[in-house]
Amino acid sequence: MAKRPEPIQVVKQRRDAALGAIVSGVPYARFLGVTFDRRGDELTGILNFDENLIGNPFLPALHGGATAAFLELTSVITLSWSHHFPAIESGALDPEAMANGELPRMPKTIDFTVDYLRSGLPRDAYARATISRAGRRYASVHVEAWQDHHDKLYAQATGHFLMPSPSDNGGS
């Protein structure tokens, strides 16, 4: 007989705790006001609007650097999340230990190229990253950001990342 699926609360709590630990492990995400919405294993980054994100006060428009940082954060968190998802699900990575600072190493950015398609409006922005290739050492990620309409992207980016080597994982 097949194994009974886990109760929904157990699954949700484990995944949300693991994601929360990964995101809170990046102080810069808090500084920018970037949070993540999770549906299954799919993540959406949210850049919560704040006056401090403005780059041109006359328009006003979001700072290109804030947008670049938001896209890079979404890429690196999505990459880290997908890289560690099997270990989170199997229990090899314990969300409680992660919350106490035993975080796996993050991927490192090698290069990042941002296309600015429209001026960023002074309101929330959303981003989703797609992992084009996740190799053992290198990963290639594409990320798209929008505001009011998902089909009207305001920025997109492509980046390459160096994955943490297995010996870097866990512990300090």
Binding site: P27, Y28, L32, G65, A69, E72, V76, G101
Partner: peptide, 27 residues
């Protein structure tokens, strides 16, 4: 600034903060 850290294990600032600096300086 500690608020700009990307990896607390090393204390290294996040690439995004470097991006913001470079974007501003280029402009």
């Amino acid at each position: 600034d500690e608020r700009f850290i990307g990896d607390p294990k090393t204390g290294v600032i996040h690439g995004g903060a470097v991006s913001a600096l470079m974007d501003t300086c280029c402009g």
